[in-house]
């Protein structure tokens, strides 16, 4: 099985998913009624009159989480080859991986202590 033929079905699956969602959207658009009015078009805010805009101001916590995520996601990507080859690499590989994890755990400890993981 070549690489291309292995991934072709996945492309088909993705297309199928898009087809399903597209069918849903189109069916709703064409079969549903279209009776618009000002109140209905307004975003729902539990019946309160809209005040201000949401703009693009997020809590900085979300950025912090994204950064911590990035660090650990990259860590995982680096660790996968080791996990699959753990028997072949033996204790040498284990030590290397532990040092790598240890550095990141230090980073986690620093984040923790600095309060990057606190959501008050």
């Amino acid at each position: 099985m070549t690489i291309a033929s292995g991934y072709l079905p996945i492309l088909l699956m993705i297309l199928l998913g898009m087809l399903l969602a597209g069918t849903f959207t189109l069916v709703g658009l064409y079969l549903g009624p279209r009776l618009r009015n000002k109140v209905k078009d307004a975003p729902f805010e539990s019946g309160f009159i809209r005040d201000g805009t949401e703009g693009s101001r997020y809590d900085v916590k979300f950025y912090m989480t994204a950064l911590v995520f990035l660090v650990f996601d990259v860590e995982i990507v680096f660790l996968y080859p080791w996990t699959v080859q753990v028997r072949e690499l033996g204790w040498f590989g284990f030590t290397a991986a532990m040092i790598f994890i240890g550095v990141l755990v230090l980073g986690l400890a620093y984040d923790w202590k600095k309060g990057a993981l606190e959501w008050e």
Binding site: T25, V27, G28, L29, L31, G32, P33, R34, L35, R36, K40, D41, A42, P43, F44
Partner: peptide, 9 residues
């Protein structure tokens, strides 16, 4: 299927 498909302003 027969519900209105609303798009907020």
């Amino acid at each position: 299927i027969f519900k209105e498909d609303t798009i907020p302003k």
